[in-house]
Design a protein around this nucleic acid. Structure first.
Length: 289
DNA sequence: CGGGTTTGACCGGCGC
DNA sequence: GCGCCGGTCAAACCCG
């Protein structure tokens, strides 16, 4: 199975486009996504999913640009209950345990409730739904990775059985309630685990400023966001060399087996934006409207 | 002075 | 019911 197109994966919190040449048998574990040309700055493979799971294309094309997280997570949730395969790396499994197994029920409490928290007791019957979360595991010496958005730290906690604290961040943009947590992996301190929750309601501030002034794509990997008509930066932490593990977590299902890996392979393309301009401008854009 | 960080206190969920 | 623990708040602090 092969196709060439631009696919916007709305499930990701960063409006992630795959300028892609896909080769896949339709199963997650066989999926690979070569980005750009042969030297591709990244590929992605899905691991740990059974044959009965929907194909990546089903998931990509069924996702919708909405904040309704139940619809966002509906397809992956079918995947999530499958058992992991032995191929699943220990480190990714550890991430799943760390990120999903614990209670996070009050994470999405709206701001009004938060401000009134200490004055009024919260209604018990309102069980808040969790946002879909994405955990990136990145080998980096820097804890807080540059991702094109501005964040404000609102807390830090020490985590049980870990000598490294966990930082809590919110997107500084008004009306954008995306949060992220940053911590170091217990099993490998050189790995930074960044967990995103929610979807940004605005483009990357760093990129859009430059694009607005020049009309040209900024240096580094980028894509043209047809929705906002600006150049955007795909979410790739800009530390090289590095490898990143990406796991999708479903808010309704605490056990996660859907494990994917994302790995950048070159740093050359990070500076060759003329090449990327050729590569990443979509000729076909698959997108829900 | 405004915006971001630090850090101790507080809250609620959960397991025993 | 109690204690543990993760997540959040908010005052104090820092910095450009």
């Amino acid at each position: 199975m092969e196709s060439k197109s631009m696919v916007k994966w709305e499930n990701l919190p960063f409006s992630y486009y795959f300028p892609a040449s896909y080769t896949s048998t339709g199963m997650w574990q066989d999926f690979s996504c070569e980005l750009g040309d042969n030297s591709s700055w990244g590929f992605m493979e899905m691991l740990g999913v059974q044959d009965s799971t929907p194909s990546i294309f089903d998931i990509l094309q069924s996702s919708t640009p909405t904040h309704d997280q139940t619809s966002l997570a509906s397809k992956p949730s079918e995947v999530v209950n499958q058992p992991t395969t032995p191929n699943s790396s220990a480190i990714s499994s550890a991430t799943n345990d760390e990120q999903i197994g614990k209670g996070v029920d009050h994470e999405e409490e709206d701001e009004q409730q938060k401000t009134q928290k200490q004055l009024k007791p919260k209604k018990k019957c309102e069980k808040r739904q969790r946002e879909a979360r994405f955990a990136f595991m990145t080998k980096s010496e820097v804890d807080h990775l540059e991702d094109g958005y501005r964040w404000r730290k609102y807390g830090q906690k020490s985590v049980k059985n870990s000598s490294f604290p966990r930082g809590y961040y919110r997107c500084t943009s008004a009306a954008c309630n995306v949060k992220k947590r940053v911590e170091r992996s217990m099993s490998d301190p050189s790995i930074v685990v960044t967990t995103y929750e929610g979807k940004h309601t605005h483009p990357s501030t760093v990129m859009s400023r430059q694009a607005a002034s020049t009309g040209l794509p900024p240096p580094g990997p980028s894509f043209f966001d047809a929705a906002s008509l600006v150049w955007q930066r795909p979410f790739i932490p800009h530390h090289s060399p590095f490898s990143t593990h990406l796991s999708y977590t479903n808010p309704t299902t605490p056990s996660v087996t859907e494990i994917s890996r994302f790995r950048t392979t070159t740093s050359a393309l990070l500076t060759d934006h003329s090449l990327l301009q050729d590569i990443l401008v979509p000729s076909i854009v698959k997108k829900e409207s």
